[in-house]
Computed example of a mutant assay.
Amino acid sequence: MKNTNRPAFHGSDLEQIEAYYHIKKEDIISFGANVNPLGLSPSVKKALAENLDVISRYPDRDYVSLKAAISDYCQIPASFVAVGNGSTELISLLISQRRARHAVVIGPTYSEYQRELALTGGLVTAYNLKEEDGFLPDTADLLRFLPEDTDLVILCNPNNPTSSAISRDDLTSLVSACRERDIFVMVDETYAEFAPDPRLITAIPLTLRFDNLMVIRGVSKFFAAPGLRLGYGVTGNQDFLASLKIHQNPWSVSSIAALAGELMLQDAGYIEKTWQLIDSERTRLTEILSGFRHARVYAPYANFILVRILKEGLSSFQVFEAAIRQGMMIRDCSSFESLPGEYIRFCVMLPKDNDRLMKCLAELLA
């Protein structure tokens, strides 16, 4: 039974944490927001500072240059690309335009999908990943599960909060089977670029083969720019892209965000440095956590790790509080639907900060 009387904090709720625990937000290491610990790329920061005059001009309504950069980065035609005010806007647009009669959401996952689906009035069914399988998706089982009238499937890959992922081969089977049943598939790849090998899990190349698919990404997490509000979607379905454009507000991406997006996607040095840091620290932290007697860790594909607490009488909220009182904010996962048991989630930060968190968790779980 979930405890609904205690506070639940999102990874970005530093102001609420500051007020509740009387800890200055500047002194909090945010392990809950899943943002790249390197921060904004220095070269991007410098270029933006030198080009602030773009704010005085309206953006190109068609975002030709930005879409060309996304096309080059993703290796797909620019005509496949839609851009938006963060991935959230594109998720909202997709769901509102598909107007699914019966959507299936693979969970436990990001609550925004359910919220947006509720606004369309259709039926929503959850397909829950199994803890005994390490939260790894079983494509054959999912396809058997889909109700006959399903017309939309939504999944996050890698998934939040489980950090599990579905392979490109399995995605191909899923999308192909869904096309035969006239089911549209939305894949949220917010965390795909952090994966040990993003090429093995991304669905973007599948947009060249299937028109019942849209992949959505953003720059908030990997490029450490949540305040920029820039997202993009990739689909080969030109009719659907045209429908999105008709219903999207003009200039939803600011001039400065469009420029920043171009710069970020071309910053090969920053991209490689990020991947090296996340991959090495993720491996190191997983090995440490695997040695904790009272914890169960699942193979992570994203830049965050899900841990189940196995110590009798110790709750996820108690672990959250132990960490926050030492100035470290992790995610108490009790607010996630379809995740029974006591779980915490935290993202990979800089090595010295990760060491502090491991020391705190070791006192409780080792």
Rank of each mutant, 00 (worst) to 15 (best):
Asn3Met: 09
Arg6Gly: 10
Phe9Trp: 03
Phe9Ser: 04
Ser12Lys: 14
Gln16Arg: 01
Ile17Trp: 10
Ile23Phe: 11
Ser30Lys: 14
Phe31Gln: 05
Asn36Leu: 02
Ala49Phe: 02
Ala49Asn: 09
Ala49Glu: 13
Asn51His: 05
Leu52Phe: 01
Asp53Glu: 15
Asp53Val: 13
Arg61Thr: 14
Leu66Thr: 07
Tyr73Ser: 06
Ile76Gly: 00
Phe80Leu: 11
Val81Pro: 05
Ile91Gln: 01
Leu94Thr: 15
Arg99Tyr: 13
Arg99Val: 01
Ala100Asn: 00
Ile106Asn: 03
Pro108Gly: 07
Pro108Tyr: 12
Thr109Trp: 07
Leu117Tyr: 00
Leu119Ile: 06
Val124Asp: 05
Asn128Tyr: 09
Gly134Thr: 00
Leu136His: 12
Pro137Glu: 05
Glu148Gln: 15
Asp151Ile: 11
Leu152Phe: 02
Pro161Val: 03
Thr162Asp: 08
Thr162Pro: 10
Ser164Ile: 08
Ala165Trp: 02
Ala165Cys: 10
Asp170Gln: 06
Thr172Ala: 13
Leu174Asn: 08
Cys178Ile: 13
Arg179Trp: 03
Ile183His: 11
Val185Trp: 05
Met186Glu: 04
Met186Lys: 01
Val187Ile: 12
Ala195Gln: 03
Pro198Val: 01
Ile201Arg: 06
Thr202Gln: 07
Ile204Pro: 02
Leu206Ser: 08
Leu206Glu: 01
Asp211Arg: 13
Phe222Met: 06
Ala224Met: 12
Ala225Thr: 05
Pro226Met: 12
Pro226Asn: 11
Leu228Lys: 08
Leu228Val: 05
Gly233Asn: 02
Val234Gln: 04
Gly236Leu: 02
Gln238Ala: 15
Gln238Lys: 13
Gln238Pro: 10
Leu241Arg: 14
Ile246Tyr: 13
His247Lys: 12
Asn249Leu: 13
Ser255Pro: 07
Ser255Met: 05
Ile256Thr: 11
Ala257Pro: 09
Leu265Met: 11
Ala268Val: 14
Thr274Lys: 04
Trp275Arg: 15
Leu277Ala: 03
Arg296Asp: 13
Ala299Pro: 10
Leu306Pro: 06
Leu310Pro: 07
Lys311Pro: 02
Leu314Met: 00
Leu314Phe: 04
Glu321Asp: 14
Ile330Met: 09
Ser335Cys: 10
Pro340Gln: 03
Tyr343Met: 08
Phe346Asp: 12
Val348Asp: 07
Lys352Arg: 15
Met358Ser: 11
Met358Asn: 10
